[in-house]
Design a protein around this nucleic acid. Structure first.
Lengths: 258, 258
DNA sequence: ATTAATTCCGTATTTTTAACGGAATTAATA
DNA sequence: TATTAATTCCGTTAAAAATACGGAATTAAT
């Protein structure tokens, strides 16, 4: 727990938060046919973490997750999905928190029996966002922070590698029951683009004709009259999401079994 | 947080636990074609809660859930499934904890800014168990504790009514992907029995011929050569679970879509 | 005019799911 | 001992969904 400037004591800052419980957000983005995750490298440590933070006593865990996701991405109203909580004593062994270490990074002396040295339960959410939207606010992100391809992760702190894998499992399960893509694609997109998105997330190839058939059957995307001119080949038509049907699908479920 | 006898101070007892986070177990049992949930009525309050408890600093959240489930049921090795975490400021308003109240029930004076007066995030699990196994240990359960039909719940503390509903939703989703019943049926059971169990959990009637077909296709149950003599009608054959296939199904999933 | 890259479309086959009726067994009882 | 009431148990057909697959059209570069 890093103390921002302007606080006279550790507790003056930390008292606004719940103890021994925190939120982690696995922020996923899609770029160049690859799923990426936004990681940060805090406090000059050599390991990376998913984005996360503490829960204010006055907010719900969902509100905390939203607030933190907004802080890291600058995007309001991200779709956050809780997929599990993680907690075991090994977490505190791995993080290297000691009174000396806390003294060094925060300047405050804390007793060895402070709750800060007990393990934290992490309530984990994942979210999907369009890669480019976040990159534009990259300058505002704190410390070291960058996108990593989900299958080429750097050395991760604690169990964060595991948490990312669980997020991906949850996403793959989720995708079978709910529409996906609104958050990950530009407003107008082509069929091959959304096709490739699904292939990337599911990690397998999907027959293009069957994919199109099923997708259009759900009516969550509608064809536009425009095409996009790219490359020396036929120009693909553009599509967009039918926002109402999409929202409806999020609530009540849409079967899209691939 | 009730202090057992023999502790000199609140912190002497509470220091073994993580703060502001706890575990709740929705213990489900099946009896007479009805799903029931084990609830307790703590501290002479008039509202009921699902079983739950605090997490020791030395144990994982899963271990805490197991320990607590064992305490309440006397059954070792219950299958516990995490299905979500719940936390918002309303929880603390609802529980009625005040320094005066804590003084009354524990005998200790606590400062108003103690973490005990902040809300607790609940990591929730559900478990399935054979009703009769637990009932036999009922005498050992603490305080008021009894089974309630899941659709005739008494007044519930906090959001515990909501948590139970979420547990049931999770269970109904779960049942489509994993085998169920080993924990809820006696060792040997009849087809009508397991059929009725599935109907009860899913809350709808399932065609018996199709049900049997699908169930046997999974190979998780095997037919025995015995029958059970009950009533003035044809004696049903007995079946049992193939434990190996069942375990395998729990790990890798079994499609049983009804 | 040719070529390379890519979009786009439809039908046939297989598999899965859903719907459905009637004969067999048991024990009570008339 | 014949009848009745309650329940188990079985198999086929129709409908729906998923899968497999080939070839023509467009574009821009050469």
């Amino acid at each position: 727990m890093i103390i921002p400037p302007g606080f006279a004591s550790f507790s003056e800052y930390s008292d606004q938060f719940l103890k021994n419980v925190a939120v982690d957000n696995v922020i996923l983005g899609y770029h160049e046919k690859e799923l990426k995750v936004l990681l940060q490298q805090p406090y000059t440590l050599e390991k990376w973490t998913v984005t996360g933070g503490y829960i204010k006593k006055t907010e719900s865990i969902e509100d905390a997750a939203s607030r933190i996701a907004f802080d890291r991405t600058g995007i309001k109203g991200l779709y956050l999905k809780q997929f599990g909580s993680f907690g075991n004593p090994q977490r505190v062994i791995d993080n290297g928190f000691t009174p000396q270490y806390i003294k060094k990074i925060t300047g405050f002396d804390l007793p060895a029996d402070s709750w800060i040295f007990d393990y934290f339960v992490s309530v984990a959410f994942y979210t999907l966002t369009e890669f480019s939207k976040v990159e534009s606010t990259k300058g505002e992100l704190e410390a070291d922070s960058r996108w990593w391809p989900v299958n080429e992760l750097p050395p991760m702190m604690f169990d964060h590698g595991h948490i990312i894998n669980e997020a991906l499992s949850a996403l793959r399960l989720h995708i079978a029951h709910f529409p996906i893509g609104y958050e990950l694609l530009p407003e107008k997109f082509t069929l091959p683009e959304i096709h490739s998105l699904y292939e990337t997330i599911l990690g397998k190839s999907l027959d293009d004709r069957n994919f199109t058939k099923k997708l259009l059957l759900t009516k969550i995307v509608t064809k536009l009259d425009e095409t996009r001119k790219i490359g020396r080949h036929r120009s693909p038509f553009l599509y967009k999401f039918d926002k109402e049907r999409y929202q409806e699908g999020l609530k009540s479920g849409v079967a899209l079994v691939f």
